[in-house]
Design a protein around this nucleic acid. Sequence first.
DNA 1: GACTTATGTTAACGATGATAACATTTTGAC
DNA 2: GTCAAAATGTTATCATCGTTAACATAAGTC
Lengths: 179, 179
Amino acid sequence: MVQEDIANLSLRQLAAGLGVSAAAVYRHFADRDDLLAEVARIGFERLEKQFEDAFDMTCPPADAPEATFRLRRLAEAYLGFADTEPALWRLIFSAQAEPFRGITPPEGCGGSYQYLPAALLGLHQTGIIPTQPNERDALFAWSAIHGAATLRAGLVPGALMPLTELATEVAERVIKSLK
Amino acid sequence: MVQEDIANLSLRQLAAGLGVSAAAVYRHFADRDDLLAEVARIGFERLEKQFEDAFDMTCPPADAPEATFRLRRLAEAYLGFADTEPALWRLIFSAQAEPFRGITPPEGCGGSYQYLPAALLGLHQTGIIPTQPNERDALFAWSAIHGAATLRAGLVPGALMPLTELATEVAERVIKSLK
DNA sequence: GACTTATGTTAACGATGATAACATTTTGAC
DNA sequence: GTCAAAATGTTATCATCGTTAACATAAGTC
């Protein structure tokens, strides 16, 4: 687990830690922002991996409980990441990492941005929510989960609730909001 | 509107902008973090003022529409701040400002932390939501609004929806999630 | 073997946050 | 009004930081 905020990482300290001169870093990264962007990229990949593990995209959910379960697991992956790697989480979703444009824009909603809509669609397909989920539904669901994760990564750390419980609750409430 | 990210503010540049030496700043602030904390504090006060203006605490809502309206206005204030002052918003809710403990802890839920619970209570009192809202209800509502604001202040700027529309929608969905 | 590429080095530059030592103004008590 | 103290500013200096330049060396290619 990354402890201190990565954004405060000193390029020189990092280099020293690697037993290498500061200038050597510039053989691999254009500048500090580029380095942070790479760290963010790798962190994001790990998050994506969590999504992938949590969520089987290959087949639609068999029944309503499974569809619910999928959303819950997705929320758990999202929240869990914010919980166990708050500093990395903050970096990924910070303006610092913004130079790395690969993360930020949900243009075609590919990559990681597919899971949540897919989860919502599964809820619809198994009859849990009445209407075909649209972009706004997805944005709200994302807001709720992202907000919970953000609060957990910062203002309201683990205190109030164990992770799985929170994930379950958030998923339930998101579903309720779509009914 | 504060344009560039305040967290990147240089103490020296600031001092120069004020026509004063850099060292003079240290007569008023312990260090850079202290300065940022003060900026965050003032920003937070402005946000609180918005809440206050948006939300009349003196009397309970007269009827259901008014109770709904209050939550909507609250969401609008929250989202509006993230929308018009994204950099200041980010500073307030960033780890940078964390030294200023006055903002972060929702211990007694006084100050700004009273508005959202009060709004939810109003929804219950006017019969919109069936159960007396508890801390978890408030936390979820906060998550949803905070998440929407966070996304709007960063990853998903103003694009998808005009502000009032988004606020209305978020409020509606939050209410739905509590039914 | 010569040339290119990748990767490292040291030395230096300017900007930054911070501190020390010193000067000046404001203020308040007597 | 005097005068000491507090407040507020100054310049000089430091270590650190991101970054660049100039140079060295190892590995691989023709």
